[in-house]
Design a protein around this nucleic acid. Structure first.
Ligand SMILES: [Mn+2]
Ligand SMILES: [Mn+2]
Ligand SMILES: [Zn+2]
Ligand SMILES: [Zn+2]
Lengths: 148, 148
DNA sequence: ATCATTATTGAAAAACGTTTTCAATATAAC
DNA sequence: GTTATATTGAAAACGTTTTTCAATAATGAT
């Protein structure tokens, strides 16, 4: 249940860092929301628990969560990186609607396998990948057609 | 041969813009290098032809080249967007070595088709996509193994 | 519990790539 | 040539992220 806190704690100890209430709180806030959140959004949420929490601390902590494997930073091409849960969440790609910004998560073993094959053919060792499909969701495509 | 200049010219006329030596020179510089170049690199090259060319003009012109379909902006996760040729270059994905930065271009119809299928299943109209595989190239994997 | 060591914090400043502003200039149409 | 206005380059502004720094807090040893 609280496996994520254990992971952060052992990562902190392993690196000779220190456990702080700020770090624990930011992890709690991060875990409380399923989705893709910017540092600004995370800081706003964190402030509800500790009005004096600093923007810098959120930046630093999210970097820590990434390094410990709890969070993943994703970029959807609008210049605002967002974080999503990584622990107990399998890898997936993103379909982003360029009209409304909605984001669909897609996991497909075939694509992963194909990437492995292409990499192997080029004597390239894949470590991770990102794939984003930009387009129009059902709702926004309708609007698009009406407008034209 | 000079189809690219025609494309830019008609795009400029279509939008009620003006033909300038700066725009023509930046296009020339851009076309002269096959690869992925940052605005900084393009500006440095442009300066060899016109010492007084402004950074801002390169930014503005590369945006124009993108809009006219001559250039494509790509991001490899290091925070530095780069531009590559788009005209007469078919779509491809990127395999980026995280050690040396080398970038391999991979075009594969199967992946494109798979993406189409996944999109259709979700009632999503794909417009474009980006796929990047990060990992170690042949040379850098060797070093990695030796170091461990 | 006290102490010493040093990691962490939050505010401010700096850094970074990019965009906006603006006055001077260049382009294109008449 | 005249006019209208798009373009230019420098500087300033911008938005996000990182760095700096003095105060504070966490940890381990005594
Ligand atoms: Mn996701
Ligand atoms: Mn390419
Ligand atoms: Zn939509
Ligand atoms: Zn390499």
């Amino acid at each position: 249940m609280d496996k994520e806190y254990e992971i952060l704690d052992s990562f902190i100890r392993f690196r000779g860092l220190r456990h702080t209430p700020q770090r624990e709180m930011i992890l709690r806030v991060f875990l409380s929301v399923e989705g893709h959140l910017s540092v600004e959004e995370l800081h706003a949420l964190a402030k509800k628990h500790d009005r004096s929490i600093g923007y810098t601390t959120v930046y630093r902590t999210m970097k820590l969560l990434s390094e410990s494997g709890l969070a993943d930073k994703v970029e959807f091409g609008d210049g605002i990186p967002r974080y999503e849960h990584k622990y107990n969440h399998r890898h997936h790609d993103h379909f982003v609607c360029v009209k409304c910004g909605k984001c669909f998560e897609v996991a497909h073993a075939g694509i992963e396998k194909l990437q492995e094959t292409l990499a192997r053919e080029r004597d390239f060792t894949p470590l991770w990948h990102t794939m984003q499909v930009f387009g129009l969701c059902k709702d926004c495509r309708g609007i698009e057609i009406k407008l034209q």
